[in-house]
Design a protein around this nucleic acid. Structure first.
Lengths: 190, 190, 190, 190
DNA sequence: GATGAATGAGCTTTCATTCAT
DNA sequence: GATGAATGAAAGCTCATTCAT
């Protein structure tokens, strides 16, 4: 007997992401996803009840993977600058390695599919970073500013930076990336 | 495309932007735009030959307005920090004042509608800022880094920052905005 | 300007009924209805929000027409037998004249589309007949039985009778029809 | 069509009938039948080559059972009224006991599945009743009318009558049923 | 034989576009 | 020019049927 194959879910996710990376969420159709995944249209409906559910599941999946990657090898005890740089580099690397996934997450966020509970889930993933900020502010290493603001300055430019590195065919770590982190660090340190 | 009534074109632009702000570019239909603008569907086709042309025209329109706003009251001879802060504030203000327009421009950029020549047009608009950077680096006031990198660091976080201020019901200038610009400045100055 | 045409609703009703008469409710598709009505598929959706609504509206429409026909030229003061025969003949005639409509009403009744409120509506239409029965029983002209039972015996066989007459290419009034009504009358009279 | 397990065929028949009783023939799918029967979809195809064959077989099966029930304990030599009442009561009882089956037979009859040879088969089953009518007319006990007409008057109201008894939660025999047969008898007797 | 995942034709519905008024 | 009904291609989804296990 053929059993439902978990790997096929991944196949579908990957196909959908690739297509979003190419033409945006707006151009995404069930038929295209199926063809890209090498499946029949109907097969998608064995794994997801409808298009919205597919996209929603993909968002959760991608968000989870991205978050996990964000804190890879992360040690909360490390010196602050090193710890922050690790997270920062992880984020950059993820955006480059999983470019399609990142584009999808971003576009989903402003699409009509986005729902309130998913906003909260997004915020929760940042908790360890915020604890790091608190420590830094207490030790007078960081400017005494709102955590969200610090996060915005640390991470905000990474989207465009990744785009730039990608355009130049670059990899991480790179001199460009090091210089970029220094900009961030000089901005937020006290 | 007989532009009988210029005001009606603006009406259509505004309606389309409002809808994108609410539910993203993906859910945008000609019928919805028409209803939001208080027109009949067919009327849209008096002003634009088709949907793609409408969006394309709207992008150019919005981009132009945004750019013009970016350099409002800008004087290239002013002290560097003040000049940069003015551009920075203008950008932030525009994102807040014309939130829908900004969201549209952003989503259009990654949509299947985006075309190569429009990318170039986007870059050209930044020329005055880049001249400012060159001056700053020559005078040893700024870190000696790639202009694009400096621009990314200056502008990159503004999208999220605007979102934050918007969420808190804030306006510009505000203490939050001042603190935020200091972060930027400390990051890029030598 | 083209205005929504009420006659087109009738056109759609007629087309749907004709098809149900031919192949039953089960084989009914929006595409077939549209083609039979000489319209594009999409046009159906200017007049009805979806297939279910179309069928529901058609049911109410057909039921109303059928009921109106049932009591055509009906005069509650007439002698009992004549009054009943008129209703009986009207029913038979309607089933023959509007055969498709009748088949539709019947099939809709046992289809998954049928809803509770429509059952009540169906019962209400029979009120004048029931008043006739009451009068007949009071005057000892009819057996003293439940109205519903009398109605069932008067009307129940008409479906099959109509089928039989139709098969024999007959019309109403006919000797067959007269004999048939005598059967009924002899059954219910006291 | 290897009939490995005769009991499973019955299981499928019962499941299909139950579903038709609930929501009509139109909403019937192979997947639903399988689930209701506690089988896998594919298993249905071991017992029937396709959906049409399944329904056709079910029709013959149900028709046969119904017919057999119609003439249960029937003795062609009995007095006419008693013999007719027996058949009449059997029919009523069957409609009540095997309600789903009866609904299925009825709906199948007007569905696109119905085929010409099945109409003939349906008529043939009535032969013993028709012989009874002939005897009655010869003995001047019944009106001298077409057998089909007599049959229609005897059986036609039973569908609705069964519905009524079912609604009132009644059983057979019942005073209602006795009164109802009298209506019939008085109608057809000479 | 039994299973249920996979298939794809065909159904319902949407929507950019046209066109009679 | 403005209107919105009409169009039909294409989208989302269902379901009879097949087939690997």
């Amino acid at each position: 007997m053929k059993l439902k194959d978990e790997g096929k879910t991944e196949l579908i996710y990957a196909a959908a992401c690739r297509l979003v990376g190419r033409a945006g969420i707006a151009g995404l159709t069930m038929a295209t996803i199926a063809r890209e995944a090498g499946l029949a249209t109907g097969t998608l409906y064995t794994y997801f009840p409808n298009k919205e559910a597919l996209l929603r599941a993909l968002y959760r999946h991608a968000k989870l993977r991205t978050t996990k990657a964000l804190f890879r090898d992360f040690n909360e005890q490390e010196p602050l600058r090193l710890a922050l740089q690790k997270i920062w580099l992880n984020y950059l690397r993820t955006r480059l390695d999983s470019y399609d996934e990142s584009v999808f997450v971003e576009q989903y966020y402003t699409s009509p599919y986005m729902q309130a509970d998913e906003v909260q889930m997004s915020l929760d993933t940042m908790a360890p970073l915020f604890r790091l900020f608190d420590r830094g502010k207490k030790g007078l290493l960081l400017k005494d500013l709102d955590n969200t603001l610090l996060a915005i300055y640390l991470m905000g430019p990474l989207r465009e930076l990744a785009g730039l590195i990608r355009l130049q065919g670059g990899t991480v770590p790179s001199p460009l990336a090091d210089a970029a982190f220094s900009l961030c660090w000089d901005g937020i340190r006290s």
